[in-house]
Design a protein around this nucleic acid. Sequence first.
DNA 1: CTAATCTAGTTCGCAGTACCAACTATTCGT
DNA 2: ACGAATAGTTGGTACTGCGAACTAGATTAG
Lengths: 142, 142
Amino acid sequence: MIDTTVESEFATALVRMSHLVQYVFVDVSREHGITPQQAQLLCMLIGGPLGMSELSRLLHLEKSSLSGLVDRVERRDLVTRVGDPRDRRTCQAGLTPAGEQLARDVHNEISARLDAMGQTLPDADRRHATAAITALLAQHTR
Amino acid sequence: MIDTTVESEFATALVRMSHLVQYVFVDVSREHGITPQQAQLLCMLIGGPLGMSELSRLLHLEKSSLSGLVDRVERRDLVTRVGDPRDRRTCQAGLTPAGEQLARDVHNEISARLDAMGQTLPDADRRHATAAITALLAQHTR
DNA sequence: CTAATCTAGTTCGCAGTACCAACTATTCGT
DNA sequence: ACGAATAGTTGGTACTGCGAACTAGATTAG
């Protein structure tokens, strides 16, 4: 039997790294009493409120999925929907004070853990890898 | 108001890269009619059957979650449970021929897409980044 | 200016994910 | 042989994410 499975060190490294990052997300979110999806949403709102359509695009979610996600964090008083009087169809999701605090805590904790991992790398290597990844992201995020 | 949010380029790059990889996983899995979790399980079994406990550890899932996941792929005839006569408590999950084919297809397609992304990087940069990530993974995977 | 259309978001039903607690069955230690 | 440890399953709950159908408000065409 022929082994038809392609082995790419690059792809393998990315996939395994991705899982490692996911696990950090899961762990930190859980420690703060929310789900990773909710954490991602909160972190995305740190920069300011965003419309539902915008969020749905940023999070790669169908608008119906997003409605539910926002419902659940709103029920926890972490986010509020604010309507726009200029276009009464739309609304913006923004962080409540509690949500703002939680978002920053989660964001900082995740950054701290990933940075701690990065410390095991020589500074030059880490900077080089960061630059390469950032360049790759720039190419593949429209 | 003070901005208490830490900004780390390294952490940000990892998180965004992780999401990009996740989207590839979601897209490819969907195109093959399975969920990303099922795809991850199938890919993990390419190397041969594994016990439920082993899988639960590798996938960071509670054993009850894994039972359900294996149930669902077994219902689709992609995986079978095989009991061990030497220890009648345990069982191994292994790929069926259809599962083997699907696993390889999904794995190859994911690798191909990630490699294609990597092509936008100079060879030296890509190799350097791969080495750095691999080193980091070695440190943080027991 | 109204009718047709488009857009923004919600609701509903469904399958899947993941957890915990409780359980069964088997094996191991003494 | 009996109590403890181990492997896996079951059942209940909350959350995730999709598609289809829907509501309401904005926009465009005639």
